[in-house]
């Protein structure tokens, strides 16, 4: 049986642009500093480049998925509940991927692109990686096909997942109703994820359902009276697009080149910020030091 579904993201792009313009109008009236034209241009250029990279490599990933389909252990029917189930399972695997993307430098080198802006607005959502295929992160989501979800179903719900994550990149919305905040990923939860405040480092990896973070101990609630600072620990300090895309890969190459032989691989697979001589800080170290400075409750 042949299944064909549209790429939902293609249809969503005009709405992305419209919402960015609306948010800019809000910023003009309420908080002009929330946008910076050069930062916005860089973010959007990231988005275009990522789309091109996706078009160039998508066929390979699709081919691999259809090859795996022949080895499935079951066949989930092409029904509405099959789609719902696929969406939930895919979102769980997204959580796993996303957590690895922050905890393994190889994956971080690609994912850091999304975090490299010091701003947090809807244009930041489009700051997507160019090197995702190279890191093989698509392997995180393909087990779905082995379970028995059709590849077309996977790609469709994956698109919906990406579309959902767009609107949560904003400071316009404070908090959603309590029941929604309890189950779904929201602007509040995702602001925490993009923060560099030690309290928030490596928290809230969820894509759509925040319940994964609550289940696996990585949830952190946004604190009302603490100003959030966005970006990465060592801010880029440049709008140069190519440096923004490849800086962490260059950092890995330099570290692997200069490290003693027995430590070379560690600069690839260990947590970002790890160093063999302890001269750098991981997010765990930063949070620990910050916690030590906090007064006793």
């Amino acid at each position: 049986m042949t299944h064909q579904l549209p790429n939902a993201v293609d249809y969503a792009v005009p709405f992305f642009i419209l919402l960015i313009v609306l948010e800019m109008i809000w910023a003009k009236r309420r908080a002009p500093e929330k946008y910076e034209p050069r930062d916005t241009l860089t973010s959007l250029a990231f988005g275009v480049g990522s789309t091109v990279a996706g078009a160039l490599t998508g066929t390979i990933i699709a081919g691999f998925a259809f090859w795996l389909w022949d080895f499935r252990i079951a066949t989930i029917p092409w029904t509405w509940w099959g789609f719902v189930l696929c969406f939930v399972v895919d979102d769980f695997l997204y959580y796993a991927f996303h957590r690895a993307a922050h905890r393994v430098r190889w994956f971080w080198a690609s994912h850091v692109n999304h975090h490299s802006s010091q701003h947090y607005n809807l244009s930041t959502a489009l700051r997507q990686t160019w090197t995702g295929f190279f890191t093989l992160t698509f392997l995180f989501r393909l087990p779905i096909v082995l379970i028995g979800f059709h590849p077309a179903m996977l790609f469709f719900v994956g698109g919906l997942n990406l579309i959902y994550q767009f609107w949560i990149h904003t400071e316009v919305i404070g908090r959603m109703p309590r029941w929604f905040e309890a189950v779904m990923n929201t602007p509040s939860h995702h602001r925490v994820h993009h923060a560099t405040n030690p309290r928030y480092l490596d928290r809230n990896y969820a894509g759509v359902f925040i319940v994964w973070d609550r289940m696996f101990g990585t949830f952190e609630r946004e604190v009302d009276d603490e100003v959030i600072h966005y970006g990465i620990i060592k801010q880029l300090g440049t709008f140069n697009l190519l440096w923004s895309v490849f800086h962490e890969w260059i950092g890995i190459a330099r570290d692997v080149w200069s490290a003693p032989w027995r430590h070379k691989l560690s600069y690839i697979w260990r947590v970002p910020g790890w160093s063999h001589d302890g001269s750098r800080d991981t997010s765990d170290a930063l949070r620990t030091r910050w916690l030590e400075r906090q007064p006793e409750p």
């Binding site: 642009i17 960015i20 313009v21 800019m24 109008i25 910023a27 003009k28 002009p32 500093e33 929330k34 946008y35 910076e36 034209p37 050069r38 916005t40 241009l41 959007l44 250029a45 988005g47 275009v48 244009s123």
Partner: peptide, 17 residues
């Protein structure tokens, strides 16, 4: 074309400060 338009619009609106 769309991204250049948005970046131009952001400048035109005086965002950034």
């Amino acid at each position: 074309i769309a991204i250049l338009f948005i970046a131009w619009l952001a400048m035109l609106m005086g965002l950034g400060g």
